[in-house]
């Protein structure tokens, strides 16, 4: 199917590439369908593009790019809602904020990761209350 996007024009995607957000992005409760778009080869970023709203897209990255171990507990209720059968199906991504004026000030939200079930194509944003993770973690060292 074809998806209209503000940033990438018309994008052709397979139906099975669409993630159903059974736990919506907080503040975007009406947005239930997103796709992941690669930024470019070797880029640590991906776009999470809304299927229904052309202008809505988040920059995503992964904690694999950080030296420390990012350990999260996914609540049972989330496992149920996302129909996670195998832990191998879980993809954990975090939203990055990259200021237009100053990309070096880029930050990533470690407190509220997006959990994607790559097998069932379900997804959701969870808040790791009490984890101590930073909502505005600086990506670049020289801009702490």
């Amino acid at each position: 199917m074809k998806i209209n996007t503000t940033r990438f024009g018309e994008v052709e995607v397979n139906e099975d590439a669409i993630f159903e957000f059974v736990l919506p992005m907080i503040g975007y409760e009406k947005e239930d369908k997103f796709i992941l778009i690669d930024h470019s080869k070797n880029s640590p970023f991906k776009w999470l593009q809304s299927v229904n709203s052309p202008e809505l897209a988040f920059v995503m990255t992964s904690a694999i790019y950080f030296e420390f171990e990012y350990v999260i507990d996914i609540p049972d209720s989330t496992v149920e809602k996302l129909q996670i059968d195998s832990t191998e199906d879980i993809l954990v991504m975090n939203i990055a904020v990259i200021p237009n004026s100053n990309p070096r000030a880029a930050r990533v939200n470690l407190l509220a990761p997006v959990i994607l079930n790559t097998a069932k194509k379900t997804a959701g944003q969870i808040i790791l209350s009490g984890s101590g993770y930073d909502v505005n973690f600086p990506i670049f060292k020289d801009n702490v």
Binding site: I26, H39, S43, P44, V59, I95, A96, R104, D142
Partner: peptide, 29 residues
């Protein structure tokens, strides 16, 4: 945070990605 997250532009993302790939600065640790 989500609201700010959806305001990133393709240009700024290219720049941030270049910063990383050119290794001018490193990803945090």
């Amino acid at each position: 945070a989500n609201l700010m997250g959806q305001e990133s532009s393709t240009d700024s993302l290219d720049q941030a990605s270049n910063l990383i790939s050119k290794n001018k600065t490193s990803l945090n640790d």
